[in-house]
């Protein structure tokens, strides 16, 4: 009996060895489907209201009570051939005081904290360090209006929910050279002289394309919902004037057709830059930000005094 078992095992061993050798001696990688892979173009339609919606959304983000604090997360990802360089940012904004940034640049993490006139930066090597002054002032909404000169060419993409919030999707495409020339902003004013001074840079910009997509919230609130909301914000809803002022400040816009108030926060913002790079083809660079959990009671930032304690710890 024992002998028979052993022989059966020997046979099993032979089978295993055969499979083993088959695996180790070679395999093939058959081809997948031999077809070109076209890039799909989305359905678009003209968007005459793009300029107006951009302004409304920026104003809503600027003034609405709910937009005074929120979470954000985003990145700049540059793809040049096999090299991909990312910078990533996430954290919270608490207006008008400050923000916290958990950042990575080129896969190296660091953190940045701002509260009023207090600025701290953390790297693994240095720990938390106090900085003297800020280099770029806090202004989370800066830059959105810089797209206004191109709003007349915007198109509307199919509506899309972002984190279950229904959004209107607007897209603007521009050539790199006209983007730099027409966009009235201090950053590009500085850069224009550099472009003119550098042989070949204009050709680079002529062949650059930029495509910006903005997801603007399109949420509806009934009159009752708005009154509840206002009441939660200590508004005396029996006082029509006070209520109207609050509605006005929060940019809640009455839609007669649907008999609801509309609210237009910015939920997502993405820009692709396709740009020639010397000796390395063209770069695809994505700048992406998402804004979420508006007015989240969980948003808490340490006070500067608490940050100072970190410095003492480090010391």
């Amino acid at each position: 009996m024992a002998h028979r078992n052993i022989f059966r095992r020997s046979r099993n061993i032979s089978v295993m060895i055969a499979v083993f050798m088959l695996v180790l001696t070679g395999c093939t990688y058959p081809s997948g489907e031999k077809v070109f892979q076209p890039t799909e173009s989305p359905d678009t339609r003209p968007a005459e209201d793009a300029s107006q919606m951009l302004s409304i959304a920026v104003e809503t983000m600027e003034h609405a009570d709910v937009a005074q604090k929120f979470w954000y997360s985003g990145w700049v990802a540059s793809h040049i051939q096999k090299r991909q360089v990312n910078s990533m940012f996430d954290g919270v904004v608490v207006r008008p005081h400050g923000y916290l940034v958990n950042a990575r640049v080129n896969a190296n993490p660091y953190r940045y904290y701002k509260w009023d006139d207090h600025y701290y930066l953390y790297t693994e090597k240095s720990g938390w360090v106090k900085l003297e002054k800020e280099e770029v002032p806090m202004d989370p909404l800066a830059g959105f209006e810089w797209w206004q000169p191109f709003a007349d060419r915007a198109v509307r993409l199919p509506d899309e929910p972002i984190l279950s919030k229904n959004c209107r999707v607007y897209q603007i495409e521009a050539n790199g050279q006209e983007w730099v020339e027409l966009s009235a902003n201090p950053l590009f004013e500085e850069i224009r002289s550099r472009v003119q001074e550098t042989d070949g840079m204009e050709h680079i910009l002529q062949n650059t394309t930029v495509k910006m997509t903005l997801w603007i919230g399109d949420e509806s609130y009934t009159r009752e919902q708005v009154e509840d909301w206002a009441a939660k914000n200590d508004v005396d809803t029996d006082n029509q004037e006070e209520l109207d002022q609050w509605i006005e400040r929060n940019r809640l816009i009455w839609n007669e057709a649907e008999q609801v108030y509309k609210h237009h926060l910015i939920y997502q913002y993405e820009t692709w830059i396709n740009m020639p790079v010397p000796s390395a083809g063209y770069m695809d660079q994505q700048t992406f930000f998402r804004f979420y959990k508006f007015d989240d009671p969980g948003i808490k930032m340490k006070s500067p005094a608490e940050m100072e304690a970190y410095l003492d710890d480090e010391a």
Binding site: V58, Y72, G74, V76, S87, F89, V93, Y99, V101, A103, V105, Y110, Y112, K114, L121, E134, E135, V136, P137, M138, D139, P140, L141, A142, G143, F144, E145, W146, W147, S183, N185, L187, F188, V210, M212, Y269, T271, I273, T287, F289, F291
Partner: peptide, 13 residues
């Protein structure tokens, strides 16, 4: 970089 990116609208610029 951190302060500039926190002016979100300016990030691609």
């Amino acid at each position: 970089l951190a302060e500039g990116m926190l002016q979100f609208g300016t990030a691609p610029f």
